[in-house]
């Protein structure tokens, strides 16, 4: 099959596709349920939010939840833009650092030979199994020991070494054929060159997947704001959205929480669409067979 630009599906609808459509379409509806729910929930008026039995769809959509959220944010000391800025800085820094470190480590653990390599991989696997709640307090001790409390680093560093991402990317690097790397050695490439010119282009789908996962982790992360940061002006957007819904009385807070979850969801959607596109493009062009 030749490469036909960005298009991945066939152009025309044919009869042969019907049986596939029959299998795929009903499941698509199920997969769409949570998204529809989030959107509907954000626009529900008060009486529909607390309806019994609960309603799935919205009947009389209003913007009330958003306006009350705006009102609440106007009364707080620190403007909402500050939290947005914090979240942006933290998220971008974490995703970039984490992806760079994970791919480098994955390349080294998968393709270079040295003592203790298998041991390191084992350590990562053990860390993978561990419940994040259990390391919360020891992590706090480390953060205070390194004097990182009330800095951006307190948000960034705990997530940078994310074992799931390393595990995933390493598995993809394993599938890169050794012949390609040997060929690069023959032509006099250093390890750095192999990393940037051979490995990275070939594992772009893994990078995108890992990037999405890390982004999700950090974007909705409230733990670091809760435990490691005392300065209000350094907390992130997820924390702010959560507190604003809980600060006011719980009944009004429900509506605001629904609106806030929609606001938090939109950037995730955008990031995913952008990255997903790059995944599909690289898969069409990747040269290895």
């Amino acid at each position: 099959m030749a490469y036909k630009g960005n298009r991945i599906g066939p152009e025309k609808f044919e009869k042969g596709q019907i049986k596939m459509m029959v299998a795929v379409l009903p499941l698509v509806l199920f997969m769409l349920l949570p998204i529809i729910f989030i959107i509907c929930h954000a626009f529900k008026p008060m009486d529909e939010l607390f309806a019994c039995p609960p309603e799935f769809f919205v009947h009389r959509p209003t913007m009330d939840n958003f306006t009350s959220l705006m009102k609440a944010s106007r009364t707080s000391n620190i403007p909402i833009s500050r939290y947005v800025f914090n979240s942006l800085v933290i998220t971008i820094a974490t995703v970039i650092m984490s992806v760079v470190f994970s791919t480098m480590a994955a390349f080294s653990l998968s393709k270079l030979k040295y003592k203790g390599r298998d041991m390191l991989m084992q350590v990562n696997q053990i860390a993978l199994m561990f419940v994040p709640v259990a390391v919360m307090i020891p992590r706090y001790m480390v953060v205070t020991y390194l004097h990182l409390t009330d800095t951006y680093w307190a948000h960034i560093l705990p997530i940078v070494a994310y074992p799931v991402a390393l595990f995933l990317i390493k598995q993809f690097v394993d599938t890169v054929p050794n012949a390609l790397i040997e060929a690069a050695y023959m032509d006099g490439a250093t390890e750095m060159k192999i990393y940037t010119h051979v490995i990275l282009p070939l594992i772009k789908p893994a990078i995108a997947t890992g990037g999405i996962m890390i982004f999700q982790q950090i974007w909705v992360n409230m733990e670091t704001s809760n435990y490691y940061v005392n300065d209000e002006s350094l907390k992130n957007l997820a924390f702010y959205m959560n507190t604003i819904a809980n600060l006011n009385n719980t009944v009004a807070g429900q509506g605001m929480a629904a609106a806030a979850s929609l606001i938090m969801f939109v950037p995730q959607l955008i990031v995913f669409i952008v990255l997903q596109n790059s995944v599909m493009n690289t898969m069409a062009t990747s040269g290895i067979k």
Partner: peptide, 15 residues
């Protein structure tokens, strides 16, 4: 081997 350690190092420190 040396390069291997260099590549893993940042991750090791973080982990």
């Amino acid at each position: 081997a040396r390069m291997g350690y260099v590549f893993v190092l940042p991750w090791i420190i973080g982990a």
